[in-house]
Amino acid sequence: MFEAKLTEGLILKKIVESIKDIVTDVNIDISPSGISLQAMDSSHVALVSLNLSMDGFEHYRADTNMVLGVSIANLAKVMKLADNNDQITLQADQEATHLKIIFENPKTERTTEFNLNLITIDSEHLAIPETEYSSVVTINSGEFSKICKELFSLSETVQITTNTDYVQFSVEGEVGSGQVRLGHNDSEKKEDQTILEVSESVQQQFAIRYLNMFNKASTLSSFTRLCLHQEQPLVVEFKIDNLGVLKYFLAPKISD
């Protein structure tokens, strides 16, 4: 038996909205300690990794480990039934054929229930090696989203360069070439800070369209954390306060 209740249901709505354009069918791993999912996009260039801790739920019970195969596209349709201030409860029996989703609004006495049919997915899990990222950039999530959108109109590819003084996003195309350079900014307004932790410089190229999809998650956190390592995929990380973390992994483009 699995049951989890989230008082701030809006978070779950945002999480589904943040991953629905990247992954289609996912296996949601339920365990006594929390909920996790790992899935790649169809081209195996991007990977979504979500981890939610049981502590973040108003009520959480999972007697055993379970795997719930879910069509994210269908889950997104069901989540549309939720109002932004609904409490959301997820329920599934052992060997369940469906996931029961309940939206409650204690103020308006409105309750919505939906049994989402589960699907069987034989998706293989990828082993993500523990990596010591030699560059970690913490940046305002809205600002990073804006930079990506603006650069995308100038080029499909962005080159990210880090060093101890700045992180640089450069583009080059038939329009011309240029870069956005952000230095360390410890302004007193915390959410405007840009924090660079660079032990080794990194320079890699990435397809911006994936970054734009990842940035849908910027509604979940005021900060985006970019973790870079010269030989590893980029990690774009959004911490979900009191609940967990949503990470996106993006394979680089190798310049010839």
Partner: peptide, 14 residues
């Protein structure tokens, strides 16, 4: 522009 790598180049199937 560089060739797009896939995650399979970096992460092994479990």
């Amino acid at each position: 522009k560089g060739a797009q790598k896939s995650l399979g180049n970096f992460f092994k199937k479990q």
